[in-house]
Design a protein around this nucleic acid. Structure first.
Length: 627
DNA sequence: TTTAGGG
DNA sequence: CCCTAAA
C-alpha cells in the first residue's frame, strides 16, 4: 500500500476537505464549501465515487489503524483519494439532502445548520481525527453520539432516509435530524450499504444505538466504555471517518437512490450484528466483493470512472462492471453480506472468496470452456466451499456448471433472485455476432473473451443448464473448412488451425459436431428411419448451403471412416442437387465439377484415389458457399 | 493425448 | 455434450 493512484486533481473542495480533516473547527466553514463543491463539480463527485468503490478493504484498516489511514499507508489509494473520499462523503450527503431533504425543509435546516454543522459535522470530523490520532476519548464525539441517542425517533427517521430516499419525504426532520445526518448518517449509510446486501438495509446506526439501548448500556456514555460499544464506536468511527469509509458510504447513497425502489425499503430494524464482524468483513477481501457489487449496482450511474479504480482490484471491478446492472444491483441488495462472508466463508478463505468471486464472474460470463477433470473438481470445490452451502439442492453432483454456481449464489440471496445472471450466461454468445465473438476469442485468455462477451442476450439460455454452447454458423463453417482441408478424424488439427481461438471447442466437440452435421444432412443415418429423419429435419436449422457442403465433404470423407456415406434418396439434401450416384473421376471433359451440385455423388472407380483428387478437394474447400 | 463411439 | 475405451 503505497500511494499509487494518480492525483485526481485537487480542487478547492479538496482543500477544504483537507481542512476539515485537519481542523474540525473549520469544518463548519468547509461544509459550505463542500456543499458548493457538490454543486460546482458534480462530475468530480462521480469520479470520486468510482474511486471510492475500491475502498472496501481499507475501511477496516482505518478502523484499526487510524494513523495509517491518515497517511494513506494502509490504503491502496493515495492520500489524495482519501481526502477526496472524505470530501465526497460530505458531498454526497449534501447532494442527498438536496435531493430529498429539501422537500423536508432541509433548506431551512441547512441555514440553521449552523448549529448542526458546528455540532454534527465537527463531530464527525472529530471522529475521524479521533480515530486517526488515537482512539478516542473525544468528548465531542461522545457528545455527538449521545446527543443523537437522545433523539431515537430522529434516528429512526434518519435510518429511513439512509435506507431509501423515498421514505425521507415522510419524515419530518428537525434540525436535530439533519444534524445527525451530518454526523452520523454517513456511518449508517455505510452500514446500510452493507446491510443492503444482506437484505436489511437499515442497520447501522440503529443497531449501534440498540446495542446501547437494548438494556445493557442505557447510558450513552457507557456505550463507549463497554467493549462491545467500543466496537460500535470503532465501527461508527469507521463509518464516519471520512477517508475510506466514505466511499462505500457514497456508494451506498448512490446505490440507495437507485435501488431503494427495488427493495421495499427495509426500514425494519436489522437484527443486531456483531460490529466486529462487520469490521472484519470490511477488512476482508470480501469487502472487495461487496464493493464490487456496489460498483456494479452503481455502475449505471457512473460508467466512466472505472479507470480511476483501484488498480489492484481492477480486474474484479471490471468484471463486476460487466455484469448487468440489474443483476448486480439485485444481488447487492439481497445477498446477505454477513452470511456470505462469515457463515459460508471462513476468514481464512476470504482471499479465496475474492478469487472465487472473480471466478464466478468469469464463469458466469464465459461459457466455460471445456474443463478438464481437474478443473471441474476445482470448480466443484469452489462452489461447495463458497456458495453452495446454502443451495442445498443445487450442489451435489454435477455442480461444475456455471449456472449452478449462480443458482447457489442466488439461493443465498434469499432465493429472491431468479437467476438473472442465469440468463446472461452461457449460450448467450449467440446473441453476439459470430464475428465479434471470434474476434474476442483471441485464444489464450478466457478472461479476454469474457470481457468481450458482455452484451449477451438471454435468449434461449432459459432452459440450458449445461455447458452447451451453440454452434454458430461461423463455427460450423470453420469446421467444414477444417474438414475439407484435413478430412475427418483429424479433429485435433482442425481444432488447432480453425478453432485455436475458441478455447471452448475441443477436438471432441468438433468431432461431435461433425457427426451432428452429418446427421443433420441425413448422411449419417443412425439406423433410424423415416420418422427419425423427420425429427431431424425439425431440429436442423442449418442453412442449406452448409448442409450441402457437409454432404460434399461427407462424400469425400466418409465419416465413420471406412464407411460409405449412406445414399438415401429420401434424405433431405436430395433437393440440393442432382442426384448423381456415380461420378467418374476425373471428369472426361475437364469441366470443372462442382461437387455440391451433386450432393450425394459418389466418387468411385478403381482409378480414384483421394490423393489424386486435389481438384475435387479444392472445389470442396473453396466452393463459394454463401450461408 | 487423440480418436471413435456410445450415452 | 459427456464419458470412456482404445490406440
Amino acid at each position: 500500500m503505497d500511494n499509487g493512484p494518480p492525483t485526481l486533481g485537487l480542487e478547492d473542495g479538496t482543500i477544504d476537505v483537507d481542512c476539515l480533516l485537519v481542523e474540525p473547527q473549520d469544518g463548519h466553514a468547509s461544509m459550505d464549501s463542500v456543499i458548493c463543491f457538490n454543486e460546482k463539480t458534480p462530475e468530480n463527485a462521480m469520479d470520486i465515487k468510482d474511486v471510492s468503490s475500491s475502498f472496501g478493504g481499507p475501511n477496516t484498516a482505518i478502523a484499526q489503524e487510524g494513523e495509517d489511514i491518515l497517511n494513506g499507508e494502509v490504503l491502496d489509494s493515495t492520500p489524495n483519494e482519501v481526502e477526496f473520499g472524505y470530501f465526497r462523503s460530505h458531498n454526497d450527503f449534501c447532494s442527498m439532502g438536496d435531493d430529498y431533504l429539501l422537500g423536508v425543509e432541509f433548506a431551512e435546516s441547512i441555514t440553521e445548520l449552523d448549529y448542526g454543522s458546528s455540532e454534527g459535522l465537527p463531530a464527525s470530523i472529530s471522529d475521524s481525527q479521533l480515530q486517526s490520532t488515537s482512539a478516542g476519548s473525544d468528548t465531542r464525539w461522545k457528545s455527538s453520539l449521545f446527543r443523537i441517542k437522545q433523539v431515537p425517533d430522529c434516528q429512526k427517521d434518519q435510518l429511513d432516509i439512509g435506507s431509501s430516499k423515498s421514505d425521507v419525504p415522510s419524515c419530518n426532520k428537525c434540525e436535530m435530524l439533519i444534524e445527525e445526518n451530518l454526523s452520523i448518517s454517513p456511518g449508517s449509510c455505510t452500514l446500510q450499504n452493507v446491510g443492503k446486501s444482506h437484505n436489511s438495509p437499515s442497520c447501522s446506526y440503529q443497531d449501534i444505538l440498540s446495542d446501547g439501548n437494548d438494556g445493557r448500556h442505557s447510558p450513552s456514555d457507557e456505550m463507549f466504555c463497554s467493549p462491545k460499544t467500543q466496537k460500535n464506536d470503532e465501527f461508527e468511527v469507521t463509518g464516519q471517518d471520512g477517508e475510506t469509509n466514505i466511499f462505500p458510504r457514497q456508494e451506498a447513497l448512490t446505490t440507495m437512490s437507485v435501488q431503494a425502489n427495488c427493495t421495499d425499503l427495509p426500514t425494519q430494524k436489522r437484527s443486531r450484528k456483531p460490529t466486529q464482524r462487520y469490521v472484519d468483513e470490511l477488512a476482508d477481501p470480501i469487502s472487495a466483493y461487496s464493493r464490487k457489487r456496489r460498483e456494479v449496482s452503481t455502475s449505471t450511474l457512473k460508467d466512466k470512472s472505472l479507470g480511476v479504480k483501484d488498480h489492484k482490484k481492477c480486474h474484479v471491478a471490471s468484471k463486476a462492471m460487466q455484469l448487468p446492472a440489474e443483476e448486480s444491483s439485485v444481488i447487492a441488495i439481497q445477498v446477505p453480506f454477513g452470511s456470505l462472508v462469515h457463515k459460508e466463508c471462513p476468514e481464512g478463505r476470504t482471499c479465496d472468496l475474492a478469487q472465487h468471486v472473480d471466478t464466478r464472474n468469469l464463469m458466469t460470463k464465459s461459457k466455460g470452456k471445456r474443463v478438464t477433470p481437474d478443473k471441474k473438481k476445482k470448480r466443484d470445490e469452489f462452489i461447495t466451499a463458497v456458495h453452495l452451502k446454502k443451495g442445498d439442492d443445487c450442489a451435489a453432483s454435477k455442480t461444475r456448471r456455471d449456472d449452478q454456481i449462480t443458482v447457489a449464489h442466488s439461493k443465498k440471496s434469499n432465493d429472491r433472485i431468479t437467476l438473472p445472471s442465469h440468463k446472461k450466461r452461457n449460450d448467450c454468445i449467440i446473441a453476439m455476432t459470430p464475428k465479434k465473438r471470434d474476434d474476442c476469442l483471441t485464444g489464450a485468455h478466457q478472461k479476454k473473451r469474457d470481457d468481450c462477451i458482455i452484451t449477451e442476450s438471454p435468449e434461449e439460455v432459459s432452459g440450458r443448464r449445461k455447458h452447451h454452447r451453440l454452434w454458430s454458423i461461423t463455427e460450423v463453417r470453420k469446421l467444414i473448412d477444417g474438414v475439407s482441408q484435413y478430412g475427418v478424424g483429424r479433429w485435433s488439427r482442425i481444432k488447432k488451425l480453425f478453432f485455436s481461438t475458441s478455447a471452448h471447442r475441443t477436438s471432441v466437440d468438433l468431432k461431435d459436431k461433425w457427426r451432428n452435421l452429418l446427421k443433420a444432412s441425413g448422411i449419417l443415418d443412425q439406423g433410424k428411419r423415416q420418422g427419425e429423419k423427420k425429427r431431424n429435419m425439425a431440429w436442423r436449422p442449418l442453412p442449406k448451403s452448409i448442409l450441402r457442403r457437409v454432404c460434399e465433404l461427407a462424400t469425400i470423407y466418409p465419416y465413420p471412416k471406412g464407411q460409405r456415406p449412406k445414399i438415401d434418396d429420401d434424405s433431405p439434401d436430395r433437393t440440393y442437387g442432382v442426384c448423381c450416384r456415380w461420378y467418374l473421376w476425373p471428369p472426361q471433359d475437364n469441366k470443372k465439377i462442382v461437387l455440391r451440385d451433386f450432393p450425394r455423388a459418389r466418387i468411385v472407380g478403381e482409378d480414384y484415389k483421394r490423393s489424386e483428387a486435389p481438384a475435387l478437394h479444392g472445389i470442396a474447400r473453396s466452393s463459394p458457399e454463401s450461408v
